Simulated scan of single mutants.
Amino acid sequence: MSLPFRDISDRGGSAAGALGPLVDNFGRAVTYLRVSVTDRCDFRCVYCMSEHMNFLPKQDLLTLEELDRLCSAFVARGVRKLRLTGGEPLVRRDVMTLFRSLSRHLDTGRLEELTVTTNGSQLARYAADLAACGVKRINVSIDTLDAEKFRAITRWGDLGKVLEGVRAAKAAGIHVKINAVALKDVNEHEIASIMEWCHGEGHDLSLIEVMPLGEVGAERVDQYLPLSQVRERLAERYTLTDIDYRTGGPARYLEVKETGGRLGLITPLTHNFCEGCNRVRVTCTGTLFMCLGQEDAADLRAPLRASPDDGVLQAAIDAAIFRKPKGHDFVIDRKTRQPAVHRHMSTTGG
């Protein structure tokens, strides 16, 4: 089913257009928005979800038209990069309708990049459509190239299907970055082989420290592998050089001389990257989180629905951005073994 979207990028008229860029209380401009289109996922990764999740009732989610309007309100305020996430975004019914509608901001030049983070399970089906919508770069989560281990980490994912999706994206001309969560005693001894595979296929690789969000039925203290330690191990075999390359996210990149590829390190625990944070996240219910690692949030669904123009909505966004904290409080708590933040990653969006 295809929904008849209206062009609402300038809803609110000249008043919305006259509003300035989004700048927080610390002088950081917010130019990157990550929007979760669903909390549902067809995987149950051990560091992200519990095996038996309670998902939101579908009627609690923003409609696709509301998601379009919300994203467009941020684009009107200077957001240049827009990433759709989940859960798994490509399991949302008719999600390509949203991609097609948002691509108009690429056509006008207001938006620099429209992209997606996916587990790859549906990518073979949608890769060509994503490319047609102007998606030039995507992130795919792959924590191991061992099919049996992959199924264990995701609880029921099919590595072959994901790799098929990666090949389809590459064939469609989309640049693929692989995201891998570094997990102690799980994939730490195959990180080098994952990196060599990625670089051999022309993909960048970003390694991510496990984040203490939500109860997942596993001890994060047992999962946590510091990337400082990973880098030291890799440096014994490879020549690693820090480079000034950024994609808009928190990764700090290295060039690997022997492979000719790039390796990103996302280190919320060993190296706080908050000083240059330009990102905010909106959930599929319209809740704006100004920081992934803090509980403070703002309801944008009520102002979104309160008025047909964006005046009330933009006022709510301004008030929230002013409250954006200086940094997160992520820590692996070895005493209480409780997550730093009790909501799951799938609730906020990747």
Rank of each mutant, 00 (worst) to 15 (best):
Met211Cys: 09
Arg83Ile: 04
Leu240Thr: 01
Gln223Asp: 14
Thr63Cys: 04
Glu232Ala: 15
Lys136Ala: 12
Lys136Gln: 15
Asp39Tyr: 05
Pro268Phe: 11
Asn25Ser: 15
Lys170Ile: 06
Arg305Phe: 10
Thr336Gly: 01
Thr241Phe: 10
Asp204Ala: 09
Arg125Gln: 14
Ile142Ala: 02
Arg281Tyr: 06
Cys71Thr: 11
Gln229Phe: 11
Thr336Met: 02
Arg69Pro: 02
Gly12Thr: 03
Asp318Asn: 12
Ala306His: 00
Ser101Cys: 11
Phe74Arg: 06
Val162Ala: 03
Ala152Arg: 15
Glu295Met: 11
Thr117Gly: 07
Arg305Met: 06
Cys45Lys: 03
Thr336Phe: 01
Glu275Ile: 11
Ala73Gly: 08
Asp7Val: 04
Arg125Met: 12
Leu67Val: 13
Arg110His: 09
Ala340His: 06
Met1Cys: 08
Pro57Asn: 10
Ile194Asp: 00
Asp68Gln: 04
Met345Leu: 11
Thr347Trp: 13
Thr115Glu: 09
Leu3Trp: 11
Leu300Tyr: 03
Val256Gly: 08
Leu56Glu: 04
Ala319Tyr: 11
Ser193Leu: 04
Ala172Arg: 03
Leu114Gln: 07
Lys58Ile: 14
Val331Ala: 15
Asp329Asn: 14
Ala124Thr: 08
Tyr47Gly: 07
Leu102Met: 05
His328Tyr: 12
Ile243Trp: 03
Arg93Ala: 12
Trp197Met: 12
His203Lys: 06
Ser346Leu: 12
Arg77Pro: 06
Ala76Trp: 00
Ala124Cys: 07
Leu288Tyr: 10
Thr267Arg: 15
Phe322Asn: 05
Ser2Thr: 15
Arg110Asp: 15
Asp10Ser: 14
Cys198Phe: 02
Gln294Asp: 11
Pro226Glu: 05
Val256Thr: 10
Thr270Arg: 08
Ala73Arg: 04
Tyr245Leu: 04
Asn272His: 15
His52Ile: 10
Leu22Lys: 10
Arg167Trp: 14
Arg279Gln: 06
Thr348Ala: 08
Leu207Gly: 07
Arg11Asp: 12
Asp329Thr: 12
Cys277Gly: 07
